Amino acid sequence: MERRRKRPDRRRRMRRKCSRWLEALTIAGVLLGACGLAVAQSGQSSQSGQGGQSQPPAQSTDKSKTPDVTPLTLDAAPPVNAEEDAAFKAFKDVPSTDLNKKIELGEDLVKKYPQSRYLPPVYYSLTIAYMQTNQVQKMLDVGDKEVALVPNDITTLAILAQTISRTTNSSTPNAAQQLDKAATYAKKAIELAPTLPKPENLTEETFTAGKNQALIAAHSGLGLVLIKHGKNADAIPEFEQAVKLDTNPDPVNYYLLGMANKSTSHFDDAIAAFNKCAAAPGPMQAQCKAQADDTKKKSATELSAPK
């Protein structure tokens, strides 16, 4: 029972650490064009002659200012609304530690202004807040809405891919479709990451770290989808990338890497992964140690597959 109580706490701590890092980078304009879009539109509403500082969405090739708002609605840009601007400012000013208030103000803003210019950053922040408060279905729903508006947001794509892959099982409605969606999101994040331009105000190290955090989640999500489809050999390089990019690898990824290697009779690699998982303090230590011991016994009676 003690182990069961500790696991949710550990997972929440890991999610907080990851999401704080990703959120800081995204709001800075590293991974998500939506925040820059909202700022640009806000600037247009208050300084119609100074819109040149805005940054258009990455997928837009038109240099004019008008396309900046087209992802939000099929019609023209919504009219300036001082109350809407104030509502977004109040939402943005809520500390990231006050998740309930963040969710309350975000949901109110979306309900009151369903075509708000601020939907992308609000949806993104709600995705993170729902994840941190274990409201998985709400997180998935609002995350889908966010990536529909900002298709090049690799952060949300990766978070959704990993979450869907880890929460989908045989009893999940439309499980096959959910896993397909997770794979699509993960592959898209992996494909887009190398194409993102580095903002001038960020160091290469900071920018790379931000992209890597998204790539870790994307590779992990794709790897687990492959395992659930029985494609363990294909899953191995995905988890290898996830642990390689992570300065503090998630034991879950080492465990899954071990299981994929064990299932394909790569016993030495499986034992190495399980041992690294077992070396990390936490509730998975015993399970990883047991898998390492079992794999050693298995390797004594079965031939290892060639690499």
Rank of each mutant, 00 (worst) to 15 (best):
N81I: 05
A77Q: 07
S116T: 15
L37S: 04
V39Q: 03
K111W: 06
A77T: 07
D75T: 08
Q47M: 15
D108R: 15
P57K: 13
P71N: 09
R16T: 03
L99V: 06
S19N: 05
R15A: 13
F91I: 07
P56R: 00
P67V: 01
R16C: 06
Q50G: 12
L32N: 11
S19Q: 01
K63D: 15
T127L: 00
Q44P: 00
Q41R: 08
L126P: 02
A76K: 14
A28R: 05
A34D: 02
Q55S: 12
R16E: 02
S19V: 02
K65L: 11
T73V: 10
Y113T: 09
N100I: 04
L25W: 09
Q55K: 14
D108H: 12
K92F: 02
Y123G: 00
A58W: 06
S45A: 15
M14A: 14
A24Y: 09
A87C: 07
G43A: 07
S125G: 14
R16M: 10
D68F: 04
Q55P: 04
E23T: 06
K102Q: 11
Q55W: 03
P114N: 14
Q115W: 01
T73D: 00
S54H: 01
E84F: 01
L119F: 00
A38M: 05
R16D: 00
A24L: 05
C35S: 12
I103P: 00
V94E: 04
N81R: 10
S116N: 13
A40E: 03
E107D: 10
R20V: 02
V39G: 11
T61R: 09
R15Y: 07
V80H: 03
Y113Q: 04
S116M: 10
K101E: 12
F91Y: 07
E23R: 05
S54L: 07
V69N: 13
Q44H: 09
L72E: 01
R16F: 09
D75Y: 04
T97C: 03
L99F: 03
Q47H: 15
V94M: 13
V80F: 14
Q50C: 14
A86Q: 09
L72F: 07
L32R: 05
Q115D: 15
S46T: 13
P121G: 08
S48C: 13
E107R: 08
F91Q: 06
G49V: 10
D85P: 02
L74S: 05
S54Q: 01
A28H: 03
Q115A: 13
C18K: 00
T127C: 03
Q47N: 15
E23A: 12
R20G: 00
Q53D: 11
T66E: 14
A58R: 07
D85W: 08
K89M: 09
S60C: 15
L119D: 02
S60A: 08
D68S: 08
K65M: 11
E104F: 01
D98G: 03
